[in-house]
Simulated assay, not measured.
Amino acid sequence: MEAPVKPWILGLTGGIGSGKSAAAQHFIDLGVHTVDADHAARWVVEPGRPALAQIVEHFGDGVLQADGQLDRAALRARIFQSPEERRWLEALLHPLIGQEIISNLARAESPYAILVSPLLVESGQHQLTQRVLVVDAPEQLQLQRTMQRDQAPEEQVQAILKAQASREERLRHADDVLLNDRDLKWLQTEVERLHHFYLTLRGGQS
């Protein structure tokens, strides 16, 4: 018997409002093991996990809610004003999030697995992957979708767009680009097309 082929890892990313989550959901519906970096990031700071104790030791009890959960808004406010504090937090969390992602991907039983991360390129998480799919959308469309979805003012969405990797930077790392400028049905058809293609790949490269 041949040893089972270890699943290769596809990195899936896209800017805010690009439709990355809808694409990821359709891959999940097709049976692909998917790990969300945002979920891993939330999980490593759950109460009882070592990272939360270190954060409280460093920043004080002001970053905790009454129930012992991390108060994200308070922590964000603290690191927003101080690049040093932000770097301290990233140095603590990035390796832990990386370990969480790796151990979760290792449980995959599908021919390939997906790491969904909005910061795939910026965080260096693309190094965990053998191939990168970028869900792309024109910036004007990203703005409209996000303002509708989050009921957020344009300035706020513009600020988030600026903080994320530039579209050019993301596309430079892309092996595949899914231009999501139509409706959900079309997006799902494109995901299915890519899925069939990915099933033919060994190790993520043709």
Score class of each variant (00 low, 15 high):
G15E: 15
Q188G: 00
W88G: 08
E155P: 11
V5L: 15
H173F: 10
H173C: 02
F27R: 04
E168M: 00
Q164E: 09
Q205A: 13
D67R: 05
D181A: 15
Q142C: 10
L179H: 01
A174T: 03
Q142I: 10
Q156K: 14
T13M: 02
D175Y: 04
A163R: 11
P4C: 14
E57Q: 14
V116S: 01
V45Y: 10
A51C: 05
A159Y: 00
G62M: 01
K185D: 03
G60C: 04
S103N: 12
G62Q: 07
F197T: 14
V44S: 03
H58K: 08
D183V: 08
E2P: 15
L133V: 10
G48S: 04
A113G: 11
R182C: 03
R182M: 04
V135A: 05
S21N: 13
T13S: 04
G68T: 13
Q151L: 12
H26W: 14
L128N: 05
L187F: 13
A137P: 01
K6D: 04
V121A: 06
Q54D: 03
E168G: 00
W8Q: 13
E190T: 07
P111W: 04
L184N: 06
D36G: 09
L93N: 13
A137C: 08
V132Q: 04
Q156E: 14
E109L: 14
E2Q: 15
E57H: 08
I28W: 02
E109F: 10
G48L: 07
R42M: 02
R193H: 09
S21K: 15
A41Y: 07
W43L: 03
S103Q: 11
R107K: 15
V177D: 00
L199E: 08
A159G: 04
V35H: 00
Q148K: 05
R202H: 10
H26L: 14
Y112F: 11
E139K: 13
Q142V: 00
L75T: 08
G124S: 03
V157G: 05
E139V: 10
L119M: 05
V56Y: 00
Q99N: 05
S110Y: 12
K6L: 11
T146A: 14
P83W: 03
Q65G: 03
V45A: 06
E155T: 14
G17H: 14
L161E: 03
P95K: 06
Q99F: 06
A66I: 05
T189Y: 02
K162G: 08
Q151I: 10
V132P: 03
P118G: 10
Q81Y: 00
R76Q: 09
G204M: 06
H195V: 03
S110R: 13
V134H: 00
A24I: 02
